[in-house]
Design a protein around this nucleic acid. Sequence first.
DNA 1: AGGAAGTGCATTGGATACAATAATGGAGCC
DNA 2: GGCTCCATTATTGTATCCAATGCACTTCCT
Lengths: 258, 258
Amino acid sequence: MTKVNAHVTTRGQAVHEALRDLVLSGQLAPGTRLNEIELSQRLGVSRTPVRAALTALATQDLIDYTPNSGYAIRTYSARDLENVFEVRAVLEGLANRQAAEAGFSPEGEARVGDILDRTAALVSGGEWSAQVCDRWIELNIAFHQAINRTAGNQRLLTILERSPLPFIYALRYHWFTLDIVSKAHDDHVEMVAVIKNRQIGRAEAIGREHIYRTTKPLIDKWRDLERLQQQDGRQIADLLQPLCTTDQSSDAGRDCLV
Amino acid sequence: MTKVNAHVTTRGQAVHEALRDLVLSGQLAPGTRLNEIELSQRLGVSRTPVRAALTALATQDLIDYTPNSGYAIRTYSARDLENVFEVRAVLEGLANRQAAEAGFSPEGEARVGDILDRTAALVSGGEWSAQVCDRWIELNIAFHQAINRTAGNQRLLTILERSPLPFIYALRYHWFTLDIVSKAHDDHVEMVAVIKNRQIGRAEAIGREHIYRTTKPLIDKWRDLERLQQQDGRQIADLLQPLCTTDQSSDAGRDCLV
DNA sequence: AGGAAGTGCATTGGATACAATAATGGAGCC
DNA sequence: GGCTCCATTATTGTATCCAATGCACTTCCT
């Protein structure tokens, strides 16, 4: 789709990004083994850069690694998800607090305002489709990036950007509803106002709460899936399939890197 | 010293641990390039496991990586350090809060009590030497591990254990004084009491403050070094050397892994 | 028939050879 | 004398080969 690989200089990095997207897209069921040879053939490179990428991904906890056995798509329990978001909540709280302490730069304020306007237009439109949802996700990511950048904490920025909401992206059209998205937007508006007013304590609290509120539906849904799994004896992967009917066509066709 | 490598099954993992210790020990000056061939010869393996280890360490932000150029010991500014500890503070706060929510297990409570007793004995002894300091560091790490384990948040545990206080260990004998260590111990005692009483809000606040208090002297010291660097035009590495006169003999002699 | 040991295969781990890139030094030119 | 360009060299990036481990299947023994 887009030519984002301009800054990539080595095959290892290119494979790293490709596999990262593959894992995050949720196209691979949890537990799926990642065969080095298969991946290298699929990507048109040797095993060496594939192994480098797998090492990096495993270090980031995006995939599981078992010595002398290999790599596999990570399996998340509902408890795992809860933990991930609990951590993220306090980190976003910190980001908001530090953003309120630092205050917006003129450019940052303009950018955030622009993002909010676009989001408002999208949400108030009343219609909700896969395209709109994807567009909203983009704006949402851009918004949080802008806030986190305002905080001026490089370390925090790195951690937040490196721990994306995992494979859950596959659930996005079921997770995000117009209702949830509207509430999220209200949160965003309030966050910006509080940061502008330099209300440090409130900024942190709102940042935290925003994550809890937004992710609770997802955790609940995941817990339901776990329950179903135990009742039916089916794998989560099977239960997940019916939800993964979104267009994966756009992601196909990038078998080769060069 | 100890036989900790029992769980290591591949050379790559062994090299990873060895290089990790090397980096964290602070024996290498910031900016020092990590030559793959040199490292492989020094460790008695080929470049392959060395590269795997370097990839992992760079992913963990313990070293810098520049494509087609190589890896180097990371350089921390005082601001970087501050950011690292700001993040750690909120994470330790979360750990304490969740520990207070969960409460101690009988074994956990016994273990924490034991650690506190030993620390109290060490601190109240009144004497302070490199050996005592090292012993205290062990107890300190064990204490925080015990607390973090009580929180029952695997994700949090992983992040905290993977972002150790960087190469600063080299400064430990100058950073930790009997005064600071005593105050830290008082914090620990209070933390345990608050967790036992299930005072959730206080637990979080104390966990945060504990990190801020403990690390502030280090950040100040680092900032002084930066100032000296600008005045004298000398590199931080040079200014750091006089402080690194601790016994490095114990770390020598592990040139070969097997 | 059930279990345990052994054999063969698939896959990962490690070493080495080769290619590509960047840094360094010197020589030539302005 | 200084600057630029080119060539050489050192180092990283990639591919391939070999070794070692683990797993599954078979087979044999009880």
